[in-house]
Lab assay of single mutants.
Amino acid sequence: SEEELIEKAEKLRKEFEFIWNGIRFIIRENADEIRRFEELLKE
């Protein structure tokens, strides 16, 4: 039914948001290391 689809979509959206926030947190935490690594690659 349509309601089930909406519920599934909402659940997926929440899971995606949770994963995305996790990725963003990891990137933020490691931003300095990532930048340093990029500098090494440029040399």
Results as ranks from 00 to 15, higher is better:
1 S>C: 14
1 S>Y: 09
1 S>T: 04
1 S>G: 06
1 S>W: 13
1 S>F: 08
1 S>K: 07
1 S>A: 09
1 S>N: 10
1 S>Q: 09
1 S>H: 06
2 E>G: 11
2 E>L: 12
2 E>R: 12
2 E>C: 15
2 E>A: 11
2 E>D: 08
2 E>M: 13
2 E>T: 11
2 E>K: 11
2 E>I: 13
3 E>T: 07
3 E>S: 11
3 E>L: 09
3 E>W: 12
3 E>H: 11
3 E>V: 08
3 E>C: 15
3 E>I: 10
3 E>N: 08
4 E>A: 11
4 E>H: 05
4 E>M: 09
4 E>S: 08
4 E>L: 06
4 E>F: 10
4 E>N: 08
4 E>K: 06
4 E>P: 07
5 L>N: 05
5 L>C: 13
5 L>A: 07
5 L>G: 04
5 L>Q: 05
5 L>T: 06
6 I>C: 13
6 I>M: 07
6 I>Q: 04
6 I>R: 10
6 I>P: 08
6 I>V: 07
6 I>D: 05
6 I>E: 06
6 I>S: 07
6 I>T: 08
6 I>H: 11
6 I>N: 04
7 E>Y: 07
7 E>S: 12
7 E>C: 14
7 E>H: 09
7 E>I: 12
7 E>G: 07
7 E>N: 11
7 E>L: 10
8 K>P: 07
8 K>F: 11
8 K>G: 06
8 K>E: 06
8 K>I: 13
8 K>N: 09
8 K>A: 09
8 K>Q: 10
9 A>E: 06
9 A>Q: 04
9 A>M: 13
9 A>G: 04
9 A>D: 03
9 A>C: 15
9 A>F: 12
9 A>L: 14
9 A>N: 06
9 A>S: 05
10 E>A: 10
10 E>R: 11
10 E>T: 08
10 E>S: 09
10 E>F: 05
10 E>M: 11
10 E>K: 12
10 E>D: 09
10 E>W: 14
10 E>Q: 10
10 E>N: 08
10 E>V: 08
11 K>S: 08
11 K>N: 05
11 K>L: 11
11 K>H: 05
11 K>G: 08
11 K>T: 10
11 K>W: 10
11 K>Q: 10
11 K>P: 06
11 K>E: 06
11 K>M: 09
12 L>Y: 07
12 L>M: 05
12 L>F: 06
12 L>N: 04
12 L>I: 08
12 L>C: 14
12 L>K: 04
12 L>T: 03
12 L>E: 03
13 R>V: 10
13 R>Y: 12
13 R>T: 04
13 R>G: 05
13 R>E: 04
13 R>P: 06
13 R>K: 06
13 R>N: 03
13 R>L: 11
13 R>W: 14
13 R>F: 12
14 K>Y: 08
14 K>M: 09
14 K>S: 08
14 K>A: 07
14 K>Q: 07
14 K>I: 12
14 K>H: 07
14 K>G: 03
14 K>R: 11
15 E>N: 08
15 E>K: 14
15 E>F: 15
15 E>Q: 12
15 E>I: 15
15 E>V: 15
15 E>L: 15
16 F>N: 00
16 F>V: 04
16 F>D: 00
16 F>W: 13
16 F>E: 00
16 F>K: 01
16 F>H: 01
16 F>R: 01
16 F>I: 05
16 F>S: 00
17 E>F: 11
17 E>P: 00
17 E>G: 09
17 E>L: 13
17 E>W: 14
17 E>H: 08
17 E>T: 12
17 E>C: 15
17 E>M: 13
17 E>N: 04
18 F>L: 08
18 F>R: 10
18 F>S: 02
18 F>T: 02
18 F>M: 05
18 F>A: 05
18 F>E: 02
18 F>I: 06
18 F>W: 13
18 F>Q: 02
19 I>A: 01
19 I>F: 11
19 I>G: 00
19 I>D: 00
19 I>T: 02
19 I>R: 01
19 I>Y: 04
19 I>C: 13
19 I>E: 00
19 I>K: 01
20 W>S: 00
20 W>L: 05
20 W>Y: 02
20 W>K: 00
20 W>N: 00
20 W>R: 00
20 W>E: 00
20 W>H: 00
20 W>Q: 00
20 W>D: 00
21 N>S: 12
21 N>D: 02
21 N>V: 14
21 N>E: 03
21 N>C: 14
21 N>T: 09
21 N>G: 03
22 G>D: 01
22 G>Y: 15
22 G>M: 15
22 G>A: 15
22 G>K: 14
22 G>C: 15
22 G>L: 15
22 G>H: 13
22 G>Q: 13
22 G>E: 04
23 I>R: 00
23 I>C: 14
23 I>A: 00
23 I>Q: 01
23 I>L: 10
23 I>G: 01
24 R>C: 15
24 R>Q: 02
24 R>V: 07
24 R>F: 13
24 R>L: 06
24 R>I: 12
24 R>G: 02
24 R>N: 02
25 F>L: 06
25 F>M: 10
25 F>D: 03
25 F>Y: 04
25 F>P: 00
25 F>E: 04
25 F>S: 02
25 F>I: 02
25 F>W: 13
25 F>K: 05
26 I>D: 00
26 I>G: 00
26 I>L: 09
26 I>Q: 01
27 I>K: 00
27 I>Y: 04
27 I>S: 02
27 I>G: 01
27 I>T: 01
27 I>R: 01
27 I>W: 11
27 I>H: 00
27 I>V: 02
27 I>Q: 01
28 R>F: 07
28 R>C: 15
28 R>G: 06
28 R>P: 03
28 R>M: 06
28 R>K: 05
28 R>W: 13
28 R>H: 04
28 R>T: 05
28 R>Y: 06
28 R>E: 05
28 R>V: 03
28 R>L: 06
29 E>F: 15
29 E>I: 14
29 E>S: 11
29 E>R: 12
29 E>K: 11
29 E>Y: 14
29 E>L: 14
29 E>T: 12
29 E>W: 15
29 E>G: 15
29 E>D: 09
29 E>V: 14
29 E>N: 07
30 N>M: 15
30 N>G: 12
30 N>S: 13
30 N>V: 15
30 N>R: 12
30 N>Q: 12
30 N>P: 04
30 N>D: 03
30 N>W: 15
30 N>H: 12
30 N>C: 15
31 A>H: 05
31 A>I: 12
31 A>C: 15
31 A>R: 06
31 A>Q: 03
31 A>K: 03
31 A>S: 04
31 A>F: 11
31 A>P: 03
31 A>N: 04
31 A>E: 04
31 A>L: 11
31 A>D: 04
31 A>T: 07
31 A>G: 04
31 A>M: 12
32 D>I: 11
32 D>C: 15
32 D>H: 09
32 D>R: 12
32 D>F: 13
32 D>N: 09
32 D>A: 10
32 D>T: 08
33 E>P: 08
33 E>M: 14
33 E>V: 14
33 E>D: 04
33 E>Y: 14
34 I>G: 04
34 I>L: 08
34 I>A: 04
34 I>K: 03
34 I>C: 14
34 I>F: 07
34 I>D: 02
34 I>N: 02
34 I>M: 05
35 R>W: 11
35 R>A: 08
35 R>V: 11
35 R>S: 05
35 R>M: 07
35 R>Y: 07
35 R>H: 03
35 R>N: 05
35 R>F: 09
36 R>S: 04
36 R>W: 12
36 R>L: 10
36 R>C: 13
36 R>G: 03
36 R>E: 02
36 R>M: 07
36 R>A: 04
36 R>H: 04
36 R>Y: 10
37 F>A: 02
37 F>I: 04
37 F>E: 01
37 F>V: 03
37 F>Y: 04
37 F>T: 02
37 F>C: 14
37 F>D: 00
37 F>W: 07
38 E>A: 14
38 E>T: 13
38 E>G: 09
38 E>Y: 15
38 E>L: 15
38 E>K: 10
38 E>D: 04
38 E>W: 14
38 E>M: 14
38 E>Q: 11
39 E>A: 09
39 E>N: 04
39 E>G: 02
39 E>S: 06
39 E>W: 12
39 E>L: 10
39 E>P: 01
39 E>C: 14
39 E>Y: 09
39 E>K: 12
39 E>F: 12
39 E>I: 13
39 E>H: 08
40 L>E: 02
40 L>D: 01
40 L>P: 00
40 L>I: 07
40 L>T: 02
40 L>Y: 07
40 L>C: 14
40 L>S: 02
40 L>G: 02
40 L>Q: 02
41 L>S: 02
41 L>Y: 05
41 L>E: 03
41 L>G: 01
41 L>V: 05
41 L>I: 09
41 L>A: 03
41 L>D: 01
41 L>T: 02
42 K>T: 06
42 K>F: 12
42 K>C: 14
42 K>Q: 09
42 K>Y: 13
42 K>H: 09
42 K>S: 08
42 K>I: 09
43 E>H: 10
43 E>K: 07
43 E>V: 11
43 E>M: 11
43 E>Y: 13
43 E>R: 10
43 E>P: 06
